[in-house]
Design a binder for these strands. Structure first.
Lengths: 191, 191
DNA sequence: CCTACCGATCGGTAGG
DNA sequence: CCTACCGATCGGTAGG
């Protein structure tokens, strides 16, 4: 018999919601407590500090993106792999908006070593897109003068903004969205 | 003979720098004062409130974007007009990073009516891209099944992220960058 | 633009 | 998880 109403994961999830919505510095521990029906000070039985909470949310986001890239990396065909990467990113960004947005926007509030780890995560994730594009060039699918670095950034720029405008009630479902993005991207580099 | 070391514009510019870098809520009036070599309380002879300062930065950003769109709107040819919009956006985002980033990221910290005005500004600006694309479709430059709404969003997603990665020391100059973006975009919708 | 403040709120702790 | 706090910092004001 325990008196704990929430697990640490619950607290981290609620923190993600507020951090994504108002930003890390725009959210106080008392705000977060209120969202859970607790006192702000009670949160310290779950976490050591506010920054701890940010790190937990951001690392969850990083993990979701990486899991998606790892799954896509098993696909041989570069074009199908690119589709998998796009489709996976869509799911992460729409099914885990809070973690994704916090990962993308609030990592700058993390100090020193934690911030560097986030940047490493992003570089590695970006590398999966880069490689799919490089392999596509090698396979003759995309023009030889394609810049995989820049094209990967373009792809991620589009993907990272999705949750800001995509409406699931749209005529465009997620598969259609993924196809539209790949088509926008690939027809720009197809030969 | 005056004792004022700074104009309001100076204060607004410095605020933009800090808001873009650390966010509105991550910047205190004392931080801002320190950046200018003043006491935090001295800033209140230039502005009525901290939010005032945010509104001033964001409105400057909105104005810069709108001025760019207005200049481009004089171009008849839809393809040239799209290039002008892209090229203008690049200049705003790279020559006025602080105002642009604050406009893009920190407007959510503005309350009620101010926030609505920002959203109207964005919609209007996006409309210029949408119209260039629509006109391009009408002129037979782009495929008839092009979705100008979605394509405009894709274009702006790429453009709004530029300052996060573009290195002016690159082999790619601004004209080359604009061409690359238009090419990425248009070849995806050309017939 | 500075000095000297104000009440409110911040992240966090002690002790239960 | 709550009560009762802590010192630090917040946005902002009065008066010069």
């Amino acid at each position: 018999m325990t008196t704990e109403r929430y697990s640490k994961d619950d607290v981290v999830a609620a923190a993600g919601r507020l951090f994504a919505e108002r930003g890390y510095h725009g959210t106080s521990m008392r705000d977060l407590g209120r969202a859970l029906g607790l006192h702000g000070s009670s949160l310290y039985s779950h976490v050591a500090s506010k920054e701890d909470l940010l790190v937990a949310v951001v690392e969850h986001g990083a993990w979701l993106f990486q899991a998606s890239a790892d799954a896509a990396s098993t696909v041989e065909d570069p074009s199908d792999r690119l589709y998998s990467l796009i489709r996976g990113h869509i799911d992460v960004v729409l099914d885990h908006r809070d973690e994704a947005r916090t990962f993308l926007d609030e990592a700058r509030a993390i100090g020193g070593a934690g911030r560097r780890r986030v940047i490493e995560h992003r570089d590695r994730y970006e590398g999966a897109f880069r490689r799919a594009l490089e392999d596509g060039v090698s396979a003759g699918l995309y023009r030889a003068d394609t810049d995989p670095v820049v094209t990967a950034i373009f792809a991620l720029s589009i993907l990272n903004a999705l949750d800001r405008w995509y409406d699931p009630a749209d005529r465009l479902d997620r598969d259609g969205l993924a196809t539209a993005i790949q088509h926008q991207l690939v027809s720009g580099i197809e030969r």
